[in-house]
Design a protein around this nucleic acid. Sequence first.
DNA 1: TTGAAAGCGCTAACAA
DNA 2: TTGTTAGCGCTTTCAA
Lengths: 317, 317
Amino acid sequence: MSNYLNDVKPIAPATRERIEQAIADLEFVPNRAVKVMRGARAPAIGYVVSDSPDPFFVEVGRGIEDVAREHGLVVVSCNTEGSREYERSYITALAEMRVAGAIVMPSFERRDLPFRALRASGAGVVVLRDWDDDTCSITFDDDEGGRLAAAHLIELGHRDLVFLGGPGGEHQIEHRFAGAKAALRDAGLDPESLRRIDAASATVRDRVALADQVLALDPRPTAAFCASDSLALAMMNGLLRQGVQVPGDISIVGFNDVVAAQLAVVPLTTIAVPQYALGESAARLLLDELQPEHRHEQIVLGPQLVVRESTGTPRPR
Amino acid sequence: MSNYLNDVKPIAPATRERIEQAIADLEFVPNRAVKVMRGARAPAIGYVVSDSPDPFFVEVGRGIEDVAREHGLVVVSCNTEGSREYERSYITALAEMRVAGAIVMPSFERRDLPFRALRASGAGVVVLRDWDDDTCSITFDDDEGGRLAAAHLIELGHRDLVFLGGPGGEHQIEHRFAGAKAALRDAGLDPESLRRIDAASATVRDRVALADQVLALDPRPTAAFCASDSLALAMMNGLLRQGVQVPGDISIVGFNDVVAAQLAVVPLTTIAVPQYALGESAARLLLDELQPEHRHEQIVLGPQLVVRESTGTPRPR
DNA sequence: TTGAAAGCGCTAACAA
DNA sequence: TTGTTAGCGCTTTCAA
């Protein structure tokens, strides 16, 4: 029977038939858990993030799942909603399930998390964030992304720039901001001339409201660099509804290149974070962790400027 | 030890400490698979759809996960990409994992699928589709949704309507179309006066191109009812880019009420399918399946018209 | 080529 | 209150 299921040894046709008959009669479904109990990994990968329904993470997840499927693995999707308690319990659950590994974007400090348990359970771990040298991680170069975005605007001739940030992902936002300042410096401009407004919250309402705040600035900026596409899209809608022309009156650059960026009325110029590739690489790194000769790797992905229609030369005054 | 892990019996403090010490020393992580081997269900729910990254299914998934988490369960997200083979293998994998249950939107006929195996494995099954009486299912009343959408436009005074469909989800599209015709009939209008155009493909390009086809119609329709929000949004962008006013020149109604519908430059009037609630109900139904006194249920969710800014009275000629 | 038996990590039932 | 043991479904090893 065991031989049949895993066909390790040849089986006489008669015996084979007898087994198949029994399987059909009993509606027998083999129990994978037994293998797991005996030390095998569960055929699953955990994917733990703070907001899995976010288009960004969904796209990362697509990359993960495609690799997982190739290897007969299934993806356990865990939405922590930014809660420390949920994060803990998901990671613990994955460890107890003996998943092959987990791809985690931790919202909290390392010591707060049951990563040790995950490792101790034998699972691989890949972190989507700056982390330590004892862990595989994939990061994105936010500084360089910020630099590219601002450099693009400067090259078009813009001098009055505003940076739009807001709550959520502070760490990344600061790097994008710093990168933008660096671009000003590189161009011989005063980095302090880069003004900044932060949305009051991550709600659409407050993001749309940024449009008014931008229009109220004096002198009015000719270009805005937004810390994320969703913020950029909301702000742009706010401008368009008031009859402001994009890019005629104000150019806009976003960040991430989520799917919606190219579908907008005015397709958004943005800094592309290769979301699918990020998921794919993370999954491959994870599978490599299970190999005995594995060495931890810290991968840093580079940004790419995608010019669409939301940026142009500033209107002469 | 077993007593400790499941605290069924009182334990002396000294013993407890001894156990905890051992757990810490060994970095012991209990192996859930053992319970599963002994007949318990794996603490997981499968979610199998043809396009899990689609915003619609993502939102359904959110409803599922919230219920799952309440019950200490995890969600296994399976994207079949419309492939029969993937659908089969995911369902088989879930059965072998002994998941508590699975929520499936099958792309194929019942007999083609290893549903029997899933059931035989002891898992609950909830189908998101018309199905048979021996299965729990949740469906949406597409006819009524189509009727509501068209009735809204008729009530505003529109008489020249066009229905926009396209490939993907044919079954549902036909019901929405039929519902729209019924609304015309109810209003004493000729149902055959409802014109129809189908997008050549589900790509954004072909959907945007619908705008031109609509504008080329003679007489030009004053309102369009689109079989889905994503189609409506793409088409609307096509119109807006050409300077056509929405709703001034053409009113637009979508279907589903995906998140993007309210974020559009012109927020979209649409027929709301309660996606989160759908996922939530499906998950609750699934958990009920595991109760011994469970009786199968076929739930039909009703549509709701959400009026935003993409519809208005037709411009007098 | 087939059958029998030990053992994986834990639970549950029992004995001490 | 604690320790011991059988057994869950399968793989693996060994014997027939």
